[in-house]
């Protein structure tokens, strides 16, 4: 498998010396998610209603739009890291693993871009 050897690293097999970065980013985004998602749930619960005018007026405020943008980046990056580990643990065929992680990256980045665009569109007056 080329664990830790030079050729193994070139082929992307075995240790690529990026595990600590992955682990640490998962923890950093976990702490950010804890604060941002508690804020998110508390904010929705405290709104007078959850209908269209209420939600849009809420998201037009910078105090709501900015944490929402941070939440999207943190949550989407966090689940992208987490699902990657899930894939790596259960998919052992190199080809299907590669395709699954590729699909995961497109899903996370594409979904995140759509969410960021939606918040900006509302915040700048949709």
């Amino acid at each position: 498998m080329g664990t830790g050897t030079e050729i193994g690293r070139v082929r992307g097999l075995g240790s690529a010396k990026s595990g600590v970065g992955h682990w640490w980013h998962q923890r950093v985004t976990a702490v950010a998610n804890l604060a941002l998602l508690l804020w998110f749930v508390a904010s929705l619960v405290r709104l007078p209603a959850l209908d269209y005018p209420t939600v849009v007026l809420w998201l037009r405020q910078p105090v709501a739009a900015i944490p929402m943008l941070l939440l999207i980046v943190s949550v989407f990056y966090h689940f992208r890291l987490g699902v990657q580990v899930f894939i790596e643990d259960y998919l052992h065929h190199e080809g299907s693993k590669l395709l699954a992680i590729l699909a995961l990256n497109f899903y996370a980045v594409g979904g995140g871009a759509a969410a960021v665009f939606a918040v900006l569109k509302i915040a700048f007056g949709a």
Binding site: Y52, V55, V56, L59, V75, F76, F79, G82, V83, F86, G111, A114, A115, F117, A118, V119, K121, I122, A126
Partner: peptide, 24 residues
Amino acid sequence: TGNAMAFGGVVLFLWWLVAAATGP
């Protein structure tokens, strides 16, 4: 729970947000 949110929760979150950005 993590994977349920990554695939279920995220899709519903996107629906909610994109719907709010699209219109009434």
